[in-house]
Amino acid sequence: MIKILDEENPELFIRAKNQNNWFTPIACASAFKGIIQMLDLEELQNWLSNYDVKTQKSPKSIGVLMAGNIPSVGFHDLMCVLLSGHKAAVKLSTSDSVLMLWIIERLIEANKGLEDFISVEPMLKNKDAYIATGSDNSSRYFDYYFGKYPHIIRKNRTSIAVLTGEETEEEVLNLGKDIFTYFGLGCRNVSKIYVKDKIDLQSLLGYLETYNWVADHHKYFNNYEYNKSIYLVNKTPHLDNGFVLLKEDSQLVSPIAVLYYEVYDTDKDLKNKLERDREKIQCIVGGGQNYIPFGAAQYPSVSDYADGVDTMSFLTQL
């Protein structure tokens, strides 16, 4: 499985970009790099040792509705279904069918036996269980249709970063990866930062100028110009470095090209804020012991489950 993925595949990445303009070759390569890291043999073995994985005498058919917000985002669910011994009935996102079909084809080439375990279907009816990823709105639709079956239904989530003011230059620069990779479209993208002092925001904007390449993407820059015009017309206070806007806001999910921030007074105050919003937070980036290191948010380990729901436990207990 590890050998079939190449993080540099120009022709494939061009086709993916033609399907979905957000999927630039750099974004596709980043996604493939994440998958390759996830498929480290030792890490896979350690991960699977935590589950009672058996050869299924009667494998169940698992309907997997994949999202398409970032490249090949549905791979982890597909992998979990196959490694649990079940059959994956996949409904691809129209925004991410090029990459996922290519991955599925390579998997079957590597192991012909998987032909009987992977199917791509336009409609997922009468499956034994379902895994569906979407928005808060689509989750209600999924629950209506699949709620009577065993299921995992995921909703909107986002990620945040905690800054103490003691970060190194390297850490702040790495934070930019967590913010701008995939143009901020993923649930592991940092859309809000918590700071102790507003004075740190100006220097942050300066460090983030390293990522001004995002402004070369016309869709991203259109979002930047639109949000900037709204703030200017409404006289909304904000900071601006020419391609990203910093706005003080209590909400977690910011628009594309906007980074929300909120000031916290004490660690206890911050802890209470994060606990209040924990169902909406995918991961927390920062220098703290329990935080994901700066720059690592987009490269989750195989055991970092979306929405914090253990997919393998769900599948192995069916």
Rank of each mutant, 00 (worst) to 15 (best):
D178Q: 08
C187N: 08
Y226W: 11
C283M: 15
T133Q: 07
R276G: 05
S313H: 13
K33E: 10
I193K: 03
E279D: 14
D216C: 13
I26E: 15
D200S: 15
I35M: 09
K219F: 12
N9D: 13
A31N: 05
V190P: 01
R278H: 14
I193R: 03
V285R: 03
V120W: 11
G113T: 08
E42Q: 15
D116H: 15
Y194Q: 00
Y264G: 00
L114R: 07
G287E: 07
G63Q: 00
Y224W: 08
S58I: 14
K91L: 06
Q19E: 14
G295I: 01
Q56A: 10
Y149D: 09
D310N: 15
L274M: 13
D77C: 06
K219D: 11
F314G: 03
A29Y: 04
K268M: 12
E169T: 12
D178T: 04
L163W: 05
I292C: 10
W22Y: 10
F32P: 00
F243W: 06
F146I: 01
E248R: 14
Y264H: 08
T210W: 13
Y224H: 06
T133A: 11
F221V: 01
N174K: 12
L270E: 06
N126L: 09
V162K: 02
M38R: 10
V258Y: 03
G165P: 01
Y220N: 03
I160S: 02
S250M: 13
G147F: 06
G68A: 07
Y194V: 01
A257T: 01
V53E: 03
E166M: 11
G74I: 04
A16K: 02
G287I: 09
Y145G: 06
I179F: 04
Y144M: 10
Y51C: 06
N174P: 00
C28V: 03
S254T: 07
P122Y: 05
I256A: 08
R106L: 07
I108V: 14
T158W: 00
D240W: 11
Y220W: 08
E262P: 04
N222T: 12
S159V: 06
A67F: 02
M100Q: 03
